[in-house]
C-alpha cells in the first residue's frame, strides 16, 4: 500500500495569519520542489480558499486549482479538526486519491480560540500561529494549542513596537511553556522567518526526503 501523504494542520485565532502563513510557506516549499495541496476550513465564507486559489494556483501556477479546497464546518471550527474530523478526512482522502503526486497536504483550521488542537487522525504535524498584536502575554497564558503544537509560530513581529509587545518576553515565555519544542518569529506580510517554518516542515514532516517529482 502506498504511504499516505503527510498532513500538516495550521490552527490559530481569527486574524492571526493562518492563510498568510500558508500563502508564504507554499512558495518556499515549491521552490524546493515540494508540491502541496490545501484544505481551508473557513468559518463563514470561501474567502480564504478563493484567495489562496487565486494567488497560488491561478496567478503563480504553483498548484492545480482543485488543490485548494474550501470547507464549511457548521460554525464549529474546533469540532471539524478534532472531535469529529470526518468531513476533513474525507476531503484529504479525496485530494490524495486525485493527486498522489503531492508531498504534503496542509489543512487550515477555521479561526478559533487558544484550545484548538488537531486530531492525530487528521494531522501528522500541528502548527499553531498567534500574532503579537494579541499582546505579548499570549505564550505565557498557555492553552492547548500553544502548549501542545509541534511548531509555535508568532506572526506580525513588525507590529511589536506599535502594540507594546516585547518579543524577548514572548521568546522567554514560549521557551518556558514549550521546553525544547520549537517556535518561530515571522512576518507573513514580508515573508521574514517563513523559510524557518519551511525548514521545520521539511525536517520534521517530510524527514528530508526528496520531493516525489524529483525522486521519480
Amino acid at each position: 500500500m502506498a504511504k499516505r501523504v503527510p498532513r500538516v494542520g495550521v490552527g490559530g485565532p481569527v486574524g492571526s495569519g493562518k492563510t498568510m502563513l500558508i500563502e508564504q510557506v507554499v512558495p518556499v516549499l515549491f521552490s524546493m520542489g515540494y508540491r502541496a495541496g490545501i484544505i481551508s476550513n473557513d468559518v463563514v465564507s470561501k474567502e480564504d480558499a478563493d484567495r489562496m486559489r487565486r494567488n497560488l494556483a491561478t496567478e503563480k501556477g504553483m498548484l492545480a486549482e482543485d488543490l485548494v479546497v474550501g470547507l464549511a464546518t457548521g460554525g464549529c471550527p474546533h469540532t471539524a479538526v478534532r472531535e469529529d474530523p470526518s468531513m476533513n478526512i474525507a476531503e484529504v482522502e479525496e485530494m490524495e486519491s486525485r493527486h498522489p503526486e503531492l508531498d504534503l497536504i496542509i489543512i487550515e483550521s477555521g479561526g478559533d480560540n487558544i484550545t484548538t488542537t488537531f486530531s492525530p487522525a487528521l494531522a501528522d504535524y500541528f502548527i499553531y500561529i498567534v500574532d503579537v498584536a494579541g499582546g505579548d502575554k499570549y505564550p505565557r497564558k498557555r492553552g492547548l494549542g500553544i502548549e501542545t503544537c509541534d511548531l509555535l509560530v508568532i506572526n506580525k513581529i513588525d507590529l511589536a513596537p506599535h502594540v507594546g509587545a516585547d518579543l524577548k518576553v514572548m521568546e522567554r515565555d514560549a521557551k518556558a511553556v514549550r521546553g525544547n519544542r520549537p517556535f518561530a518569529f515571522v512576518n507573513c506580510r514580508t515573508g521574514e522567518g517563513v523559510d524557518k517554518v519551511a525548514r521545520h516542515i521539511v525536517r520534521d514532516v517530510l524527514f528530508e526526503l526528496p520531493p516525489k517529482a524529483r525522486a521519480g
Binding site: 463563514v44 470561501k46 464549511a72 457548521g74
Partner: peptide, 9 residues
C-alpha cells in the same frame, strides 16, 4: 449552493 458566504456545507 450559490451562497458566497456560508457556515454549513
Amino acid at each position: 449552493e450559490q451562497l458566497d458566504s456560508k457556515m454549513f456545507i
